[in-house]
Simulated scan of single mutants.
Amino acid sequence: MILGYDRLYSPDDIERALPDAASARALITAKRPALLTHMSRMAERIGAEPRALAVTLLATARLGLRHGGFGDDFHAYHNEGHVLELGERRLGRVLDTLADTAPRGDDAAALLMFAACHDLRQRETVDVPGPVGGNEAASVAETFRILDACGFDRETDRGHYVALELMVAGSTFDARPVHLDDPRTDELASVAGGALARGLALWLDGEHLHWREDPDARRGERLGRLAADLDTANVGEDFVQLCETALRLCREREMRAGRALDDPASGPPSLAFLGPGQQHYFFELHRFCSREGERVFGESKTHNGPLVKAASAAMLARFAKAPPADGNAALAAFSELTGAR
């Protein structure tokens, strides 16, 4: 629609195995029926039309089969449970906190669909020019096909496609170091680090000059900032939930790096991620992208700050004399120090 990624990534075996919402519903019912219950309740709460629920279920089932508990390439973080984190727990908190000013109608439905669609692909090897990640670009392409399969039309329902395109693209997260004293930090998406959504408008200004004349694109950019805050809202959740997220990410990172958690080689990187890495993410990389996200999760993030610092310091102190024997030792120490599992 705006970025053109739908032409760059083709369907894979997972898409062919789950071609429509009926096959997705059958798989979820067989494997994890509570997902169907929770997503149906959220769709009913926000008044989402049946097509939006169908998109959510089809994307969730494909994520579960491709990278989750329904298939054979399990990712500890990017799996079907992550959909519930965003689409139920965090979106529900947004609705509760913002009350009458919370997203409604198609905007709320877009956030629900985003929860299921934004992490569809995690093993892409083909990147795209610019700051959008290859996984996100491929997820955009598949999201378009999911919308098609669930009864949306690319002309009459263009707003849904554009919104999800920019929301998913904006969820790209740059984990490279950010220099907060760099005067360009608030001016260039490529400098700021963290979620692309915060600088997406500036990148679009340079690459897609007339996007601000398109109301669908303006809406998608706006929703993209809140969507990115939902994706990174662990900073403003209960401290134990924040730390549980860190544990799952650590397990997934080590798996993706080809290091078994009982391998001594997994010890130092696991300590680095669970120690100073958490402090780096929390204080340097993460910044809220929307006023709504900061209003909902900002106070809790402020409360968590000293706890993150203390946990990072405690991890380094625990292994000051010798590195952890392996990744499992680092994970166990972090669990003991934080109460997370």
Rank of each mutant, 00 (worst) to 15 (best):
H75M: 10
M42W: 05
A54F: 03
S40H: 02
G68E: 05
G64H: 00
E49L: 10
A48M: 06
T56C: 01
G47V: 05
E44Y: 07
F70K: 04
H67L: 12
G68C: 11
V55T: 01
L35E: 06
D73A: 15
L65M: 07
F70Y: 10
A48D: 01
L57I: 06
H82E: 04
T60P: 02
I46V: 07
H75R: 12
D73H: 14
I46S: 02
R66V: 12
G68A: 14
A59G: 03
R51A: 12
A59N: 02
A59W: 03
E49V: 05
F74H: 09
N79I: 08
M39N: 09
A52K: 04
T37M: 11
L84R: 03
Y77E: 11
A48G: 08
P50I: 15
A76E: 10
G71A: 13
N79S: 10
L63A: 13
L63E: 13
F70D: 07
L65G: 04
I46A: 04
H38V: 07
A34Y: 12
L57C: 06
T60S: 09
G69R: 10
Y77V: 03
H75L: 05
G71F: 08
L57Q: 05
H67V: 09
H78Y: 04
G47I: 10
H82G: 06
G81E: 09
H38K: 15
F70T: 04
Y77T: 03
E49T: 09
A59E: 07
G47P: 02
L84Q: 04
G81Q: 02
R62W: 07
L84M: 13
G71H: 15
R51L: 14
G71D: 12
V83M: 05
H67F: 11
G69A: 13
D73I: 14
A48I: 02
G64S: 15
E49N: 11
Y77A: 06
A54T: 05
T56Q: 06
I46P: 00
G69P: 09
G81V: 08
A54C: 10
L36N: 09
G64K: 12
G69D: 14
L63C: 08
A76G: 11
M39E: 03
L65Y: 03
A76Y: 11
L65C: 05
H75N: 15
Y77H: 08
L53P: 00
E44P: 01
L84W: 06
H67R: 12
H78C: 05
L65P: 00
L53M: 07
A61L: 10
V83H: 00
Y77K: 04
L53C: 08
P50N: 08
H78G: 02
G69C: 14
G47D: 14
I46W: 00
G71L: 12
R62C: 08
A48T: 03
F70I: 12
L53E: 04
F74W: 08
D73K: 14
A76I: 07
L65H: 08
G81Y: 04
T37Q: 09
G69W: 15
E49W: 15
A59R: 02
R51W: 04
M42S: 11
E44A: 03
G68W: 00
H38T: 09
A61Q: 08
